[in-house]
Write a protein that binds this DNA or RNA. Structure first.
Lengths: 243, 243
DNA sequence: CGCGGTGTTGAAGGCATTCAATTGTTGTGG
DNA sequence: CCACAACAATTGAATGCCTTCAACACCGCG
């Protein structure tokens, strides 16, 4: 929960984050109110019950958005990576939980100050709008997965998505690399909650992908995908012949 | 596909639609470019492949947004009712299909003209932003349903949602009426595609709800819910004791 | 070394699907 | 008005995928 002020111009997510919609003066304004904060894995960042008192950029780590039924069944309804934005403009309440999937570094802005900035900068609002449209697109993509894909396709889709997003965060390689190596930011339980499956089914399907040579596993979290296209073929359509 | 000009001030959805964000001058502008159009059930309104040349308000009827896997499995990723807005600002392509679920009446605006209006009216953009946030919320609500609810809970949730939305369209009753009567705007096949189930399962669960006295069915489409709260209890949490 | 958290593996069972047949509904032309 | 076709919905029986329950393996850590 350490907090400290920071210089925006040396920020790791300077280019991708919503701040890039601001001009120099506005950015300086933002710089004044911004505070970095580290959140340990598992901790709730924003919740259903209490109004969110701040907005934030994700600097590092992964944040999961979860919803829960009254008997405890849980579903992850969104995953956010750097440099994603956290919090909802114009809405005081949050219809789900935002929780750190692993250790997360945030760049936080007090609600009031940020909204003041939002009022004077149409570009900033526009940027948030674009963000929301992207979130809506991926939510719908995920609805297709949840409603219509088999367990195997779900897990393959998940690994494929993480591989793509991890690549875009780390050293920017070619647009469509054939090979990928990365760490899973989620536990098996989280993956299950994301895919609408059980832990056991996720584990079995990961083993199956490994057996088939589609992925290699080094330390449970560390994954290598030797052929992204082969993985995508399983993820996006009916399971091809296994021969 | 009949088209005709129209007076906004006598429009059925005048109050709820995005147009209500406009001032008199802007509304007059919109009035000039608006054209009504009737779309028969089943017809595609906007598609993945071709860029959408217009935006539209839904005046009456229901529009389904669908996504399809390469082997034909389909998922409905959104349902839009009057006075919802159709089309995406700032995006030329549409990552899914918009299709008329039943006969739909649209109020269409040519893309270019509407975007010009969007540029001069921050209120309009803001309104679209709010809309998008609402869509995102319901998409996430639906992810919870798709990933974690049983067939019975899914169908109950669906009927409950339609009941609520139908009530808010027709004669505005009390905020939370105990009783509801309405027509299902979707076929069983559409309901199945919406819930991530098969037609047969949907049919069986509807029969089960009827047997249990939670709904009454008159003409396959016409539904009566005698006790909305009882239905909500099944929809939103683990199935209660059946006694 | 033992313990808790995390992940894997096995066997049995259940819920939704699949396949198949029948019934009900709608619209059209004789 | 009725026959008929085409579509929509229901119902039944069997299969299968994923879950559930249970036991065990792995790993970091005090």
């Amino acid at each position: 929960m350490a907090e400290k002020a920071l210089q925006c111009d040396r920020c790791a997510i300077r280019n991708g984050a919503v701040c890039s919609a601001l001009n120099d003066g506005e950015l300086e304004e933002l710089n004044k109110i911004a505070r970095r904060r580290t959140v340990p894995a598992g901790q709730v960042i924003m919740s259903d019950s209490e109004p969110a008192e701040f907005f934030a950029n994700i600097v590092s780590g992964v944040v999961k958005l979860t919803k829960t039924l009254s008997d405890g069944r849980q579903q992850i309804v969104g995953l956010q990576f750097p440099p994603d934005f956290l919090g909802r403009a114009y809405r005081s309440s949050y219809p789900f939980f935002a929780e750190a999937a692993n250790e997360v570094m945030l760049c936080c802005f007090p609600r009031e100050s940020f909204e003041r900035l939002l009022n004077i900068s149409p570009e900033l609002e526009h940027r948030l709008f674009e963000n929301t449209l992207d979130e809506l697109d991926s939510a719908r993509e995920w609805m297709l997965l949840l409603g219509r894909k088999s367990a195997e396709e779900k897990v393959a889709s998940f690994v494929h998505m993480i591989a793509r997003r991890s690549a875009s965060i780390g050293c920017s390689q070619a647009a469509q690399p054939r090979f990928a190596q990365f760490d899973l930011p989620l536990t098996r339980a989280d993956i299950a909650d994301f895919l609408g499956l059980t832990i056991e089914t996720v584990s079995r399907q990961i083993t199956r992908l490994k057996t088939r040579g589609l992925i290699e596993i080094h330390s449970n979290r560390e994954i290598v995908v030797p052929d992204m296209q082969a993985l995508a073929a399983i993820a996006d359509q009916g399971a091809p012949e296994t021969n």
